[in-house]
């Protein structure tokens, strides 16, 4: 069973790296979908079955379809990346790597206080989650619905066609 985790982890990292190194946007998106599936698998291993499902539905299903749709819509399937200079790229890579090292070294030695108190597989089921959600997090959930409403209005406004003022006839 232990190996399952490591295999999954390797695949996840490989897929994520492929997302950022593949030149073709469509390929990136497909690798990203793959990454999300792998993360869902991790959720199953962590007894978060409901979240695994939601992850597949929301991320792999809805969000990635949106991405795909935009790429198709803008006709971006050809590569537009052009290297201008190595300096910003290397600076980006170096700073990212440095930050990674710092976090890595910080987490490597971290210890969780209580290791024993695992909740069992029922914990991630929708029954349990729903109880917690509607008992403790009712208000944030309602706020979430307002957030969606705002996002929806915003998207509609952004996507609206600019109204062009009709040019007035100069000759009376």
């Amino acid at each position: 069973m232990q190996n399952l985790f490591y295999i999954l982890s390797g695949l996840t990292i490989f897929a994520a790296i492929m997302v950022i190194i593949s030149k073709h946007p469509i390929r990136s998106i497909l690798f990203l979908v793959f990454t999300f599936f792998l993360i869902s698998a991790h959720y199953v291993l962590l007894n978060a079955q409901f979240l695994a499902l939601v992850n597949v539905v929301v991320y792999a299903g809805a969000i990635m379809v949106l991405f795909l749709f935009v790429v198709m819509f803008l006709n971006l399937n050809q590569d537009i990346e052009r290297f201008k200079s190595w300096i910003p790229l290397s600076a980006a890579a170096i700073s990212g790597a440095c930050l990674f090292l710092v976090f890595f070294s910080a987490f490597r030695t971290s210890v969780l206080a209580s290791h024993e108190n695992t909740g069992g597989y029922q914990q991630g089921l929708v029954e349990n989650l729903g109880e917690v959600l509607y008992r403790d997090y009712l208000f944030p959930m309602e706020i979430c619905s307002i957030l969606f409403l705002v996002a929806m209005i915003g998207v509609v406004l952004l996507g609206r066609k600019e109204r062009v003022e009709p040019i007035k006839n100069l000759v009376p």
Binding site: V54, V58, N117, L133, C144, L147
Partner: peptide, 21 residues
């Protein structure tokens, strides 16, 4: 999962909602 608490998963739920928006 390691702490045996459902709150973290609820947070993930919210993050997903925000991410979708």
């Amino acid at each position: 999962a390691y702490r045996g608490e459902a709150s973290g998963q609820i947070m993930v739920l919210f993050i997903m909602a925000v991410a979708a928006a």
